[in-house]
Simulated scan of single mutants.
Amino acid sequence: MRLRFFGSSLVSSYWNGAATYYRGLLKALAAHGVDVVFYEPDAYQRQQHRDIVDPPWARVVVYPATADGWRRALDEAAHDADLLVKASGVGVFDRELEIAVPDAVRPGAACAWWDVDAPATLDAVAANPDDHLRGAVPRYDLVFTYGGGDPVVQAYMALGARACVPIYNAVDPDTHHPVAARDEWRCDLGFLGNRLPDREARVEDFFLDAAARLPAKSFLLGGAGWEDKPVSANVRRLGHVGSVDHNAFFCSSLATLNVNRASMARYGFSPPTRVFEAAGAGACLITDRWEGIDRFLEPEREILVADSGAEVAALLDGLDETRAKSIGAAGRERVLAEHTYAHRARTVLDRLGVPVRPLSLGREAAE
């Protein structure tokens, strides 16, 4: 199968939280013989902040972030695609691409809308009777989503989707695994995430409020955009943390905090990439509460759950290294058994009716 995929970026995680999702999933699909070409615009300085070179399992086409650029890229992609995918949040000319892709598909081929921010997308469509996706979604053969469970599936079917299949985040064991801690990053609680409008208030509550309550403990804030954010004296800011450093970030703290964006927490069933990355690295995870957590990790044994910054502080204050390591090990065991991109790729290919090869989970098979 020839897969041609339009997304934000495969080679850069700079202001691009979906990077590791794309990498893990497309690498796993390529392992089944899928021919992958990834189309990404030259935008937002992502090419100047690459985390990886072009991978051996996909060809990367960087096209100019212009009207002519996306049209030429789409013509090239559609020419031989068996499945032509437009992901949400490419960043430039999204509306134009989303409308054009179904018309560009060659006879006998299929197209899919792949929403990597479904809760936010659906909220935006619900608020705007003239949103272009109301007309575009029914023209795609299939909708895949980054998560969302039944609430997202039902909302997309109500929009006229022919089918909607959640493909959840997962872990690539070859990429995210335990490493040695970095002394300069050692802390009691770390949080890694870019500063975004529908995340900021929740970070204030679950992370910064917890830090203010525990002045004797150390907190590490990673991600772009936090440079001018007021924080207490026990919070250190790292700025952008490239994907190559994620394992060290997770392995250098007693615990790692996950904070869902507001829309994702409201819909539930939308664990972000950080949950699986951190669990794959063996980190002790504390997460804000959202419906569906127990579908992925077992509270109290594989992950800790809090309803507020005060509860995060209480959990952290009562956490010692022995329990943190036990939770981290249990979480890692669970994601390797059930939540790798090898598992996710099989779901995609089964839905498309493409034969799959025997399941291979990667790095952990040799451990």
Rank of each mutant, 00 (worst) to 15 (best):
A100D: 03
R95N: 02
A118C: 10
D42C: 01
E40A: 02
G147D: 00
A73L: 11
V125R: 03
W70T: 00
D82F: 02
P129I: 12
I99K: 02
Y63L: 12
G147W: 01
A87I: 09
T121P: 12
V36K: 04
G89H: 10
L83P: 00
P102F: 12
R46K: 15
V116W: 05
A100M: 08
D103L: 07
V152F: 07
N128E: 11
H132I: 04
P151L: 08
D117F: 09
D80H: 13
Y39S: 09
V143S: 01
E76T: 14
D123I: 13
E40W: 09
E76F: 01
D94H: 05
A31F: 01
L83M: 12
D94N: 14
K86Q: 15
A112E: 03
A127M: 10
R50Y: 03
L84H: 10
V116I: 08
D103V: 01
V62A: 11
S88N: 09
T121E: 07
A127Y: 06
P102T: 15
V34A: 04
P55A: 09
A67N: 14
A78Y: 06
G148S: 11
D115H: 05
A77L: 03
C111W: 11
V143E: 07
P41R: 09
D35L: 04
L122F: 05
G148R: 09
P56F: 02
A120T: 12
V61I: 14
G149D: 08
D131P: 01
A127D: 14
Y146R: 05
A31E: 12
C111I: 10
A110Q: 10
Y146E: 00
A43C: 01
R95Y: 00
